[in-house]
Design a binder for these strands. Structure first.
Lengths: 381, 381
DNA sequence: TGACCAAAGCCAAACGGTTGTCTAGCGTGG
DNA sequence: CCACGCTAGACAACCGTTTGGCTTTGGTCA
């Protein structure tokens, strides 16, 4: 309740403004006002909705059959032999009455929801959006609906319990000391992160991608290559760092005392981090950047300091949206298989739902580097 | 940072306690332990999920009360007078067993889901993300979970039926000839679009915003101002066009024969449209652009043609992400109250769910223009 | 002491489907 | 002609909660 700030209090002109993302998260978790209403177990207290009013028994009555026949017609139960004409009567009755099965009753009886959940930290993150797109597609093909929820992981995971048959989550914590409480008895799969203590996972080829990107810079002649890393403990960043280090080490290049710099996930983070990097001595001649949003911030920082890209500084970024192509200069990027990750995640989850075992998956698509205008040989020393 | 562990984590640690106590197993309840898990072939029709396995009756037995008491304790039913000590026994039992209510059963009984749905055309669209953020926040405060689904409207609306108490939708059709089939018997609210035949709606102050943006350009001295419009029939675009026209007409300016140009919704759309506009004679000196992504494309097009912004061409864009601030040049923008729209939409929907009437809402926040580097007086003619 | 009342819970009927089992016809082979 | 198998569908027992109504217990008051 202390959050009197209007929901859109972002001050567009101030680059040092608090990231609006954290506002949202804080608001989301600061509940706990009245403990009775906040009881996470309690049932809705409101009035009852009027419901669709037409039940299966109505259909059965109109068709002159038992509800079991209706049910079997609807669900295509091949065990039952139903005469075509009866079947047609049932279908007609369904149509006449506009009957829709009651999902809750079906869930209760079958303990199947035909939905799968995707929990993400933030709707405004392009990577999650791409993952969601892939996941939604695959889920749909399998007859499931994908339900996306965002916010504090524990709350969402708990709230989704019972509403979905399985859960994908791309949450931002790798801290085993304060583990996320996963809902029990429901298949869960971690996507775009690998935290063994949190269950099976699907990830991209981050290490190879980072290596390819770094190698590209090395091939251009760069030696002082900095690496922007997100400031929350995510293994995704660690894997990229590993690829970066491998490329550096393979080339016999010294790794800077500080590999890179950690910061927030939005444009401002990239902006601030780049400002700081550009003030270091010796100044790096190339940057490996994790997201498109960061790259935007980095370009803005360069612009502000009069650092030319790519003449003075080369930039490679991981691409989570097509936006890099339209930046100025157009960004050299490594594509991340985010949609494929969403697709694969759902496939794995479906297997988990069917009680099959799954092993961790690392997508093995070859990293694709798209060279554009933001990379060039380093300036003469 | 993602989630400061909540104070109730004490109960979380007990959650893993298995009900090893004999009292629990003595409950009987047809505990057919012979339910063989290792013979998946014998259950071809439907393999059963293990469910949470602990039911309210288990809690009741452990606490030595009736399920009705458990239910009333959980739900804080004030009608029931329950002794504090009994109440505590129940709460302890819940905790010991790690009991979680079966959502489906509750839904069935109460015909309430405590969820609201948001259907959007596309996860990758920043506007929808902002709306979702606002909506998720407000829904959460009200004890609801926001479930976001994307894809073909009819499919999603149908699939969500029965899983949510109300539905927000921001779908991309204004074609009354091929109307979207709204699920009956469930409150629906259109967000960021106004289509009277599709039900109540909440929209932003698009017309005023467009007018303010256009006026800004006019004040700078521009006379040939073009307007990029999306190529699907959305009233949102129409309202903006209205504001644009009003400003032009108030200033006594001639409206170009073609107001603007329609194109796709992503960066490429903005790019192509701008290329085309810049080849017109006479060339416009200013652009009013609908989205941040389009603006990116527009800037790329200008760059390609050697058109300088703002010296040769001024650009104002509606802002759906903070990204404009980091473009080159930094974009002059009009803020859209997207998060507020999400918040208000949920508030209205909650009223609809409670069977109250709602009227269409147009958010009346004053348009906020943030002038940055992309606008300047037009070049001498 | 009996009537009465409140407190504290118990009972059982839903909610709307699903699905294993049972039955009424009916054709058929022995 | 009778037993039998098959077809087409009827029956009924759940699934796990909620909730209106009923019962038991004990205290109070006339």
């Amino acid at each position: 309740m202390e959050s009197a700030s209007s929901p859109d209090s972002q001050s567009g002109t101030d680059r040092n403004a608090q990231p609006t993302d954290s506002e949202v998260k804080d608001l989301g978790t600061s509940g706990s006002m009245s403990r009775v209403q906040d009881n996470p177990l309690s049932a809705p207290s409101g009035r009852r909705r009027q419901k669709s009013a037409v039940r299966m028994s109505d259909v059965a009555a109109l068709a002159g059959v038992d509800t079991s026949v209706v049910s079997r017609v609807i669900n295509g139960d091949e065990r039952l032999l139903v005469r075509p004409e009866t079947r047609q009567r049932v279908l007609d009755a369904i149509d006449r009455l506009g009957y829709r099965p009651n999902i809750a009753a079906r869930m209760l009886k079958t303990s199947r929801t035909m939905a799968i959940g995707l929990v993400i930290p933030d709707f405004a993150n392009a990577s999650h959006a791409q993952i969601a797109i892939g996941a939604e597609q695959r889920a749909n093909d399998a007859g499931y609906i994908l339900l996306v929820a965002s916010g504090a992981a524990e709350h969402r995971l708990a709230q989704l319990h019972g509403r979905v048959d399985g859960l994908l989550y791309a949450i931002a914590t790798g801290d085993p000391a304060a583990p996320v409480q996963l809902p029990e008895g429901i298949p869960c799969l971690l996507v775009n992160r690998r935290e063994p203590h949190l269950g099976p996972s699907v990830i991209g080829n981050d290490e190879a991608s980072a290596e390819v990107a770094t190698q590209h810079l090395i091939d251009l002649g760069h030696r002082r290559i900095a690496h922007l890393v997100v400031n929350v403990p995510l293994d995704t960043g660690n894997r990229r760092t590993a690829g970066y280090l491998r490329a550096m080490s393979n080339a016999g290049l010294p790794v800077p005392p500080e590999l890179g710099i950690t910061t927030d996930v939005d444009e401002i983070g990239g902006y601030k981090a780049t400002l700081e990097l550009l003030h270091r001595e010796p100044r790096p001649t190339a940057l490996l950047i994790a997201t498109s949003r960061w790259a935007m911030g980095a370009l803005a920082a360069c612009d502000e300091l009069g650092v030319r890209v790519p003449e003075d500084l080369s930039i490679v970024a991981f691409s989570d949206t097509p936006i890099g192509e339209f930046m100025h200069p157009a960004l050299t990027t490594v594509e991340l298989p985010l949609r494929a990750m969403g697709v694969t995640a759902v496939e794995m989850l479906l297997r988990l739902i069917d009680d099959e075992d799954v092993a961790d998956v690392e997508l093995d698509e070859l990293p694709r580097l798209t060279q554009r205008a933001s990379t060039a040989p380093p300036p003469p020393d």
